[in-house]
């Protein structure tokens, strides 16, 4: 653009620089990609089988279960995570230590192990409940769904707690002080002022955690929860179309991850309100804006 303008002003023909390196690397990359695609197209994969099973009842049921357990585990993880983060930041030393211990445990033990422990909880406690209120047999309570929910959700909450804590610490202390000086109740100080601003910092890593939980839910096969991979496995044990069904599963995971990415974008925009146009005028950097104003006026003057 700039070159064209200069050339036009001087009445000359612009000749752009040639990027030989870029051309060469692009050609190599395209060739390699073509080779990979060809390998899969001509390999021993029956693509019409893939197409056929993509919408098979069994697969769709597994997909629905995967979606449900991911959403439920994420919800549990975020709620518990916020609670743990608040405890971690509180002035109460006991709450503090307990929260730190919680994060240490649930982040440290592998998810697969956590799933198995929840699923086999009946070996330790034959019955569970709240004394005097309600009691039930652990085997009945700890269904594959419950075990997966607790396993994935609590593991997730430990990560979420750290993400939320970081987000809260990133909010300027002046925000809390301004809110307090306005006599806002402490609930509103956190819920209306601090948390919404922390969300801006929290959402991007939380989006990653969502995707990670989605994929980790495939481990729930070990506790016989009928999620997507488990359903696909049941199908290929019968028909032996192993690779085709694994491709079906991969396609669905990619599709759901893409939908999540779009959702994340929308949520980021929601919590970015008031921040996006700020970049050039943040804080006392009002100076930049003031100068911009002067520049704008000058330009207008020179045009006139």
């Amino acid at each position: 653009m700039y070159g064209n303008d200069a050339a036009a002003a001087l009445g000359l023909r612009p000749v752009r620089r040639r990027h030989w390196g870029r051309w060469a690397s692009a050609v190599i990359i395209v060739l390699l990609l073509a080779a990979v695609v060809r390998a899969f197209a001509t390999g021993a994969i029956e693509w019409d089988v893939v197409g056929e099973y993509l919408t098979a009842d069994m697969i769709l049921e597994g997909l629905a279960n995967t979606a449900v357990i991911t959403a439920a585990a994420m919800l549990l993880g975020v709620l518990v995570g916020i609670l743990i983060a608040v405890l971690r930041l509180s002035a109460n030393p006991v709450a503090n230590a307990v929260a730190a211990g919680y994060v240490w445990f649930f982040r440290g033990v592998p998810v697969l192990l956590q799933l198995l422990i929840w699923y086999n909880l009946a070996l330790v406690f034959p019955s569970i409940g709240v004394p005097g209120l309600w009691e039930g047999s652990t085997v009945e309570v700890m269904t594959p769904f419950m075990a997966t929910l607790l396993g994935l959700g609590l593991h997730q909450s430990a990560y979420t707690a750290e993400i939320v804590r970081g987000g809260i610490l990133a909010v300027d202390r002046g925000q809390t002080e301004a809110a307090l000086s306005l006599a806002l109740p402490s609930g509103a100080v956190f819920g209306r002022i601090v948390l919404p601003q922390a969300m801006r910092v929290i959402i991007p890593p939380l989006g990653n955690e969502f995707i990670s939980t989605l994929k980790t839910s495939s481990l729930a096969a070990v506790v016989t929860y009928g999620e997507l991979l488990q359903s696909a496995q049941l199908v290929y044990y019968r028909n032996n179309r192993v690779i085709e069904l694994l491709i079906v599963v991969a396609v669905w995971y990619l599709a759901v991850v893409s939908v999540l990415a779009i959702g994340q974008y929308a949520v980021e925009r929601r919590y970015g309100r008031g921040f996006t146009p700020t970049r050039d005028a943040s804080g006392p950097g009002v100076r930049g804006r003031a100068r911009g104003g002067v520049r704008a006026r000058k330009t207008m003057g020179s045009e006139a």
Binding site: G174, Q175, E177, A178, A179, Q197, T278, P284
Partner: peptide, 9 residues
């Protein structure tokens, strides 16, 4: 406050 501390969101 010196630094305004308006709620940016």
């Amino acid at each position: 406050f010196q630094r305004f501390n308006l709620f940016p969101h």
